[in-house]
Write a protein that binds this DNA or RNA. Structure first.
Lengths: 205, 205
DNA sequence: GATACTTTCTAACAATCGTTTGGTAGAGTT
DNA sequence: AACTCTACCAAACGATTGTTAGAAAGTATC
């Protein structure tokens, strides 16, 4: 590892870190005001620099959301895949997936909000966001086969409409990102526990 | 009722009808592409007229969303108030509120989507949208007292975190607007029934 | 202390936005 | 047939948008 090599690595790492910083603040602003309603000058303001300076780090406003969303989705699916590969029963898998989802919200709150609010519009306006639809498709596939397996294993009620249950579970897990604040009254794992109690056992006495 | 009077009433009614038509198409476009990302020219296109022509009917783009959202909220709260005034038990009231919510989604799908996606941003940018926060407050008040009463009456489990249950129920009812299509496989009342079965009894066998 | 490189600023750009103005086609009234 | 009113069109407006180019400040290297 030559000095020269370490230099380029050092500056490359510093540059990546700065990118991550800027993306984090961009995600916060996008989540708070909406992607389309947010100007690059507002993002730059929040980061303490001027609008044009963002273009030293990023190609465009679009590539900022792109990186925000793809980073989040990659990490989330990595966690999901670990759970799915563990070979658990359907019910245990559902529990683990829900826990991982709330941990994802805990780590990427702003990105989740942006994903929820903007992914549909983004996928409709540009080819570069088709991976959002692909992720959506994987989501449906995962949940549907999980629910079907759960019914076969006798873990879930057989009298419910599964596509409806799927949408119900999928949506309710992620909307929590809209009110969740890290460091609040309840930790992510506590919320997951309560959420699972509601979905699995219901709220009636 | 003089002829003169009937004339003005006739043209006033025709004007109101045209407004309603335009607001319906505007709501669809806002729901599909997001309010901020939608241009008034796109709304006008969908209505078959030119951008500037919208300003014969409306003061501004802002007043269009305003009218879309306030119309929806007024009708929804009227339905809610009828239920709340019926003097039912907590569980029966919850069931009736959920049914009314899905009927609201059935009638005002686009408006509900806009309300869900944009109300937070709108309330933050202009004083005229403070009624959205007020509605939000009423929502929380209604659900929390309903849930507390349900626990006292022995209808709901006492071991759950009620603020969490509130957010859970509130969100899950409305997110359905994102995928629901009138005239689809399931009618609004069927969805309400299945939804109540999930929330009250849970999905486990 | 000169040099090279990184990061930000300054200042503008073309495009697009919501909105306004003045005109016009057409239906209804007299 | 002249007039009025309604609903729209045609064309532009200033402001703001995302984006770019070149200069300048800051930092590290020798």
């Amino acid at each position: 590892m030559s000095p020269r090599r370490r230099d380029t690595e050092g500056t490359a790492a510093a540059r990546a870190e700065r990118r991550a910083e800027l993306l984090a603040t961009a995600a916060e602003v996008f989540a708070a005001k909406g992607y389309a309603a947010t100007t690059v000058r507002q993002v730059a303001d929040a980061a303490g620099i001027l609008g044009g300076s963002l273009y030293y780090h990023f190609d465009s406003k679009e590539s900022m959301v792109d990186e925000i969303l793809s980073t989040f989705l990659n990490e989330m699916w990595a966690a999901y895949d670990r759970v799915l590969a563990a070979g658990l029963g359907a019910r245990e898998t559902v529990e683990a997936i829900v826990v991982e989802s709330f941990r994802s919200i805990d780590r990427h709150r702003a990105a989740v909000v942006v994903y929820q609010n903007e992914s549909r519009h983004l996928a409709a306006t540009s080819e570069r966001f088709t991976y959002l639809l692909e992720s959506h498709r994987r989501f449906e596939e995962m949940w549907m086969s999980l629910l079907e397996r759960g019914v076969r294993e006798g873990a879930f009620r057989p009298d419910l409409d599964l596509p409806l249950v799927y949408r119900f579970v999928r949506d309710t897990v992620w909307v929590a990102a809209n009110w969740y604040r890290p460091g609040g009254r309840l930790a992510a794992d506590d919320i997951a526990k309560q959420y699972l109690a509601m979905v699995l056992e219901g709220i009636q006495a």
